[in-house]
Design a protein around this nucleic acid. Structure first.
Length: 479
DNA sequence: ATGTAC
């Protein structure tokens, strides 16, 4: 394929974009792909990875995970870390769905016992959690409450009866990113966010009842509380209209800031500001608020999932949170660069933090085995639980992939694929899908995504995170 | 991803 010809294979599954690929690159690009996956690599994704390398203060490499595809400015699947003194922050490096992410609940139930009830259970979940484009929540928060949600995230939800304290210990950032400032969130973003807290959204967002099909690492799986045959529930959603509006607002701010600070942009969508500037500080405070909204959202949804299971079984069904990860966020972290520890602003857009054993950010319960990494597959395919590694700290600033990665656009999928047909095929495989309309199923059909097993094989093979468990769907509720 | 528009 033509796209791959521009890249230099420097080791197994590591492809370099040399700095002479295009003018202005400060560092090379690194794309992690198998020989098979590289055949489907979009040349636009290479260009975007190279464009990110032109931004001021970028450290080591502009990186793309094996699920990379074209996004707004930065590629989805992109990881870029910036020096806090010379670097920048960019809304395009976080994405429109701020803290789109995923969490995994482990249940005490076994798949063989749950399967006969899957239709009733998925209907119950579908009823319990509003979903779809523009969907509104079953409850309302006022302005003061919304400000607390922006400031304290999942903690607001737990303190108001949605979940237990232990949930917070098992969330990235404890579900509460520091530095969030509701005053930096526009009225428009607040107005969009207020009625949507406690909703799933649409697109690739879903609620899924799963079975732990295979364990790859018994010791780590045990630490994560996972065993074969067990039922888990995965929740994939983000910050809804609130995060989207925050991004929209700050893209405009950053376009002005880029001019003001004389940053040469090779693509307008890379709009950014120096990390030391007031514009950067405002964006970070608003982005953190958006991230907290998403954590509160997943926390509230978790509570409704627990309620639905307990109501169905007419007893208290225990469902502990394994972990909750962000897929779209920028964070300040300490990393070693050329043997020196440095404070960096790490942008992960369609990428997951995957911290090694020993890092203080990893919850005490998992500190010896590494951070749990939750990777959702496409509808009808497997999902994975991995663990962060030291190799990942060295190669990717402690990052790994976030999912399968699209290969077909939504519009193309709608044209070529019939949702009810996909639904029928999944049912033949024993997987029940519940969605507001068939078109939503067509857009997310398994064939519009890369093979998740192949993507996971790359990150596991490179050692930037390691496989712990494979989960397969029993029933899916989609937005 | 997203009230598929400034």
């Amino acid at each position: 394929m033509v796209a791959a010809d521009k890249l230099k294979k420097i080791s197994e599954d590591v492809w370099e974009i040399p700095t002479d690929y295009k003018p202005g690159m400060n560092v090379p690009g690194h794309i992690f792909l198998s020989d098979r996956l590289i055949e489907g690599l979009e040349s636009g994704a290479i260009d975007q990875t190279a464009n990110v390398a032109t931004l001021p203060g970028i450290q080591r490499y502009s990186m793309a995970m094996p699920d990379v595809h074209i996004g707004y400015g930065f590629p989805i699947g992109g990881v870029a870390a910036f020096d806090t003194e010379t670097g920048v922050i960019s809304p395009g490096g976080v994405g429109f769905d701020i803290n789109c992410g995923v969490r995994l609940l482990r249940s005490e139930l076994m798949a063989d016992d749950v399967k006969p009830h899957k239709v009733d259970l998925i209907n119950a979940l579908y009823e319990a959690v509003p979903s779809g484009l523009g969907s509104e929540s079953k409850f309302r928060v006022n302005d003061a409450q919304l400000a607390e949600v922006f400031r304290t995230g999942a903690r607001w939800a737990v303190e108001n009866g949605y979940g237990v304290k232990a949930d917070l210990e098992h969330c990235e950032e404890n579900g509460e990113m520091k530095g969030a400032d509701p005053a930096k969130v526009s009225k428009k973003a607040r107005d969009r966010g207020r009625p949507q807290l406690g909703t799933l959204g649409s697109g690739n967002h879903f609620l899924e009842i799963q079975k732990v099909e295979k364990i790859y690492d018994e010791a780590v799986a045990k630490a994560f509380g996972l065993k074969e045959g067990q039922v888990t529930v995965m929740i994939h959603c983000g910050s809804r209209g609130a995060g989207h509006q925050i991004c929209t607002d700050y893209v405009k701010t950053m376009e002005q800031a880029s001019r003001k600070y004389g940053i040469k942009l090779y693509d307008r969508q890379l709009a950014c500001a120096p990390l030391s500037s007031p514009e950067a500080k405002d964006y970070f405070a608003a982005m953190a608020a958006g991230a907290n909204y998403a954590w509160a959202n997943r926390q509230i949804i978790s509570h409704w999932v627990r309620e639905a299971f307990s109501k169905y079984y007419k007893r208290d069904v225990r469902m502990d949170l394994v972990y909750d990860v962000a897929h779209n966020v920028a964070k300040f972290e300490e990393h070693e660069v050329d043997g020196v520890k440095k404070a960096l602003c790490v942008h992960r857009k369609g990428a997951t933090r995957a911290f090694a054993p020993g890092r203080s950010e990893v919850p005490v319960a998992y500190r010896d085995v590494g951070q749990p990494v939750i990777i959702p597959g496409s509808m009808g395919s497997a999902s994975y639980v991995l663990a962060g590694t030291q190799r990942g700290m060295e190669l990717t600033f402690g990052s790994t992939c976030h999912g399968a990665g699209r290969v077909m656009s939504r519009s193309a999928a709608l044209k070529d694929i019939r949702g009810n047909e996909v639904k029928r095929q999944l049912l033949e495989r024993g997987i029940v899908v519940k969605a507001p309309k068939d078109a939503a199923i067509a857009e997310e059909a398994p064939e519009v995504y890369k093979e998740i097993d192949e993507v996971i094989a790359v990150v596991d093979g490179l050692g930037i995170s390691k496989k712990v468990a494979r989960l397969v769907p029993i029933a899916v509720a989609k937005g």
